[in-house]
């Protein structure tokens, strides 16, 4: 049975024994909260495959936002039928990104990881990264896969300009700046790969669901 809670105009649906909690956001959007980043990606992929009637399907670190939904009740019914496992989704394409490890924060991160610069490169090259979601800038993918013990804090003061192609880490995320921008992540190296090309049919190289390997160049 469904449990609905009314709190002001808050409208939340959680069906016991299902893996998703749904909250209406504003007039025509629905927020689905799940347990972790893999499930958020899985739910977004499942919903797209089911051709949900939404203008945008936006995965986040622990949520999927469905924007521009004409019929919220139907979407709620559909999403509560999601089986909740992340195995049913086809693995995305594998992209290998060549990286020169010479970033200004490489030694600092090496200290934090109790290794040296070569050790950082080797550790990253050994990690299966997954593009979980995009944000911050067009084509900027939050790459998951770093274990908790490798989490590093953001810089106290962001750099006013980070060059395009900079490979960086913050918290448990790895990311590559698609365009030059300010940024507070710790810079480990750089790539010449094109991360963002608005003239392309696939403008973002690392769209959510893409599997990523950083390969020392």
């Amino acid at each position: 049975m469904r449990r609905k809670s009314a709190r002001g105009s808050q409208h939340t649906v959680h069906v016991p024994d299902t893996p998703v909690t749904l909250t209406r956001v504003g007039a025509a959007s629905l927020r689905a909260e799940v347990a972790d980043v893999r499930r958020a990606l899985a739910l977004a992929g499942w919903a797209r495959a089911a051709r949900v009637a939404a203008t945008d399907v936006v995965p986040g670190a622990r949520t999927v936002l469905f924007e521009g939904v004409a019929d919220l009740a139907s979407l709620e019914d559909l999403l509560t039928s999601w089986p909740g496992d992340d195995s049913a989704v086809e693995p995305g394409p594998l992209v290998e990104v060549p990286v020169v490890f010479d970033g200004p924060d490489l030694d600092d991160v090496a200290d934090r990881w109790a290794t040296d610069a070569a050790g950082v490169a080797a550790r990253l090259a050994d990690t299966d990264l997954l593009s979980a979601f995009c944000g911050f800038a067009p084509g900027f993918a939050y790459l998951s896969g770093l274990p908790a013990e490798l989490a590093v804090p953001r810089l106290g003061t962001p750099r006013p300009e980070v060059p395009a192609g900079s490979v960086a880490v913050a918290d448990r995320w790895c990311g590559i700046y698609p365009t030059a921008s300010p940024g507070g992540w710790r810079l480990l190296g750089r790539t010449t790969a094109t991360l963002w090309d608005p003239a392309s049919d696939r403008p973002a190289l690392l769209a959510p669901g893409t599997r990523v390997r950083l390969v020392p160049a």
């Binding site: 977004a44 945008d56 936006v58 800038a137 403008p203 973002a204 769209a207 959510p208």
Partner: peptide, 11 residues
């Protein structure tokens, strides 16, 4: 620009 928010593109 619709349908591209998941790639980090503002509408």
């Amino acid at each position: 620009r619709r349908g591209l928010a998941h790639l980090g593109v503002p509408r």
